[in-house]
């Protein structure tokens, strides 16, 4: 029940607007590129130093010098630009990137996010996540609503080390779409086949249901 990963990406793609410069993180966020609505032109940024990221290369055309931030071989589209890592984070910091989509382990109802470290278990590093969440104008988190143990990832307060504070504006999970406001999580859409009661049961943080809540459409 609920949305699969592709559908989460497809729903997030509806947030894209013509002219947006967008940074997509690793995992579900990467899939958003497959669902960019017709007539909407966006430029994808890869924080290792590329604006205008294109699809994977055709077999045999892959080039070790042309990768994305997930270290995958990619292509550059006509009109692309290449730059160094300082300029890459400079444009992020300066607010030139309109939207950042990334995954998370936990999100709190005040917009705090944790996605880089599980003390004693996983210490791989934050990569560019801390820079992105600190600076992007608009951050959407794509994630499962609960962890593999069935525990809510939408919390009153993050338990893991923070990546950023008061920064997440919207979350799309397998269960629904949630804005983050001063009142905490506000459910504005629910996934087909998912009840409001299930959303309430699986959301640990403060939750209100929007008066005009509706089913997600694609």
């Amino acid at each position: 029940m609920g949305l699969n990963k592709e559908q989460i990406a497809q729903r997030i793609a509806k947030e894209l607007e013509d002219g947006f410069y967008v940074n997509l993180g690793i995992g579900i966020p990467t899939l958003v590129a497959n669902y960019i609505p017709e007539g909407v032109n966006v430029v994808l940024q890869s924080e290792n130093g590329l604006l205008g990221m294109g699809p994977f290369p055709f077999e045999g055309d892959e080039d070790a010098d042309m990768i994305n931030a997930g270290k995958q071989t990619i292509t550059k589209l006509p009109g692309s630009a290449i730059f160094d890592s300082a300029m890459s984070f400079g444009m992020i910091r300066a607010g030139k990137i309109h939207l950042t989509v990334l995954g998370a382990m936990e999100v709190a109802d005040n917009g705090d996010i944790a996605n880089w470290k599980i003390p004693g278990k996983m210490v791989k590093g934050m990569g560019g996540a801390m820079d992105l969440v600190a600076a992007a104008k608009n951050i959407i988190v794509a994630m499962q609503h609960t962890n593999p143990k069935g525990e809510s990832k939408l919390l009153p307060k993050c338990t893991l080390p923070l990546t950023g504070v008061h920064c997440v504006k919207k979350i799309v999970t397998d269960l629904g779409v949630f804005d983050i406001t001063e009142d905490g999580f506000v459910c504005i859409e629910y996934a087909p086949g998912v009840s409001i009661d299930e959303i309430k049961a699986k959301t640990a943080g403060r939750l209100t249901i929007a008066a005009d809540v509706k089913e997600i459409t694609f």
């Binding site: 699809p55 055709f58 077999e59 055309d61 892959e62 997930g70 270290k71 995958q72």
Partner: peptide, 12 residues
């Protein structure tokens, strides 16, 4: 050697 870490391609 220029090793590729994640070789991702699409079919022709």
């Amino acid at each position: 050697e220029k090793r590729i870490e994640q070789r991702t391609v699409r079919a022709k």
